[in-house]
């Protein structure tokens, strides 16, 4: 087993991806596995590796507003796929939206562990990967 946790980032915001990468470099326990700019690419990756637990991430940071397949559409497919994975994956919805509609909707989905409002700080990131 690896000593660090693998993280998959699903977000189309280049600035956010750039800065999160920088933060992950400083938080020693995480390894950035991959970045996808939309829900569909992320879903295809997960489908591809569904039987290979070692290649799947432990954490997914998921944006909501994305092209092609947005965060909600991703989650719809993801919940169907989740039982096939041979491991526990923590999903954090990470969005700039502060609308209670979005927050409540995200929290009502079993596979979502928490809703994180952007911006995220390095301290928040450390907290998220402590489990």
């Amino acid at each position: 087993m690896n000593s660090y946790k693998k993280l998959t980032l699903v977000d189309d915001d280049e600035i956010f991806v750039f800065l999160t990468k920088k933060m992950i470099e400083q938080v020693k326990v995480i390894h950035l596995l991959n970045v996808f700019g939309n829900g569909l690419d992320a879903l295809n990756f997960l489908r591809d590796k569904k039987n290979d637990a070692d290649l799947l991430p432990e954490i997914i940071l998921l944006d909501l507003s994305m092209p092609v397949l947005n965060g909600w559409q991703f989650l719809e497919e993801y919940t169907k796929l989740y039982p096939i994975f041979g491991k526990k994956i923590i999903v954090y919805v990470c969005s700039s939206s502060i609308s209670s509609t979005d927050i409540n909707r995200a929290k009502s989905i079993n596979e979502v562990s928490d809703y994180v409002i952007k911006p995220i700080t390095i301290d928040k990131l450390r907290e998220l990967v402590k489990f």
Partner: peptide
Amino acid sequence: SHNLRAPLTSILMLVDY
């Protein structure tokens, strides 16, 4: 919530950095 707040968040994070 999204279109306006998202770029503001980015600016904030850039400035923090």
